[in-house]
Design a binder for these strands. Structure first.
Lengths: 140, 140
DNA sequence: GTACGAACTTAAGTCAACTTGAGGTCAAGC
DNA sequence: GCTTGACCTCAAGTTGACTTAAGTTCGTAC
């Protein structure tokens, strides 16, 4: 099976080689050996990196991501914990939707100050509730 | 009008006083004066902090957030830029949804390795496309 | 067989976003 | 008038996620 140089992976994913080395050191991805002193990666590392980037987008730390999808695709953590994250993500999606709507509002509403605009306040208050309920169950 | 001590704001929002002081120094929020040497805040600071937290959830930096919603609720940046962010957020929401579905899958699929599971791969590939298209228009 | 380029290692540096620590101030209650 | 507790300032420290720099090692092409 054909393996990939770090530069190739970098070009395929847009992630800097230094970052890939860093991820390798941290155990987020795995090289399958060396060609001389060059790390060789399998093609599925691209998939893994996609997952890593999705996790980052979601605001997870690298160590959390590592636990969620470890190298061979088997998660270290249990169903319960993952489902909790799933639920959390649902809330986050709602929040982002609220933010998007708020921004859309800001771009269009002619009110002089949005903090005084009623419909804006309503939106934000809804978001606030969600936020507080999310914050209350934050973990490392 | 009644104003709030930093400790009160902290309790209302769950944000540490040191962070509130930091935000104040950075100009993300504004205190309306002092009582002795204590900062006094108006009630609407809670709304502002909600917006700040929403922005953080969305992965914006504090300086970006500051530009989006500055102290009086009037954004410094123009419609165009905000609408670009709105669009970006839409993509991010899609990505998060993909991540959520992937995680849901991981929790339920009995396959030994998810990286080999077809339906998982399909999901992630879709996410990959979105990711790349988002990455290509990143700015400070 | 030599030159080149792409990758390597290790340590140090950077940046954002906070937090901590030391020492100081003030208002309210007793 | 004294104590107490909540706040203050300012500088330095911390953490996570990388990046940069300096010097080194290979494989491939010529």
């Amino acid at each position: 099976m054909k393996t990939l140089d770090i530069g190739t992976v970098s070009k395929m994913t847009g992630i800097a080689p230094s970052t890939l080395r860093y991820y390798d050191d941290e155990g987020l991805i795995e090289s399958v050996g060396r060609h001389g002193l060059r790390r060789q990666f399998e093609a599925n590392v691209v998939l893994q990196l996609t997952l890593i980037n999705m996790g980052k987008t979601a605001g997870f730390s690298l160590s959390q991501i590592k636990k969620m999808f470890n190298v061979d695709g088997k998660p270290e953590i249990d169903r319960e914990e993952i489902l909790a994250k799933v639920e959390d993500l649902g809330k986050q999606i709602k929040q982002l939707t609220a933010l998007r709507d708020s921004l859309k509002h800001v771009a269009n509403c002619p009110a002089p100050s949005h903090l005084e605009c009623e419909s804006f306040q309503r939106m934000v208050k809804v978001a606030h509730k969600q936020m507080v309920s999310r914050q209350s169950r934050q973990k490392q």
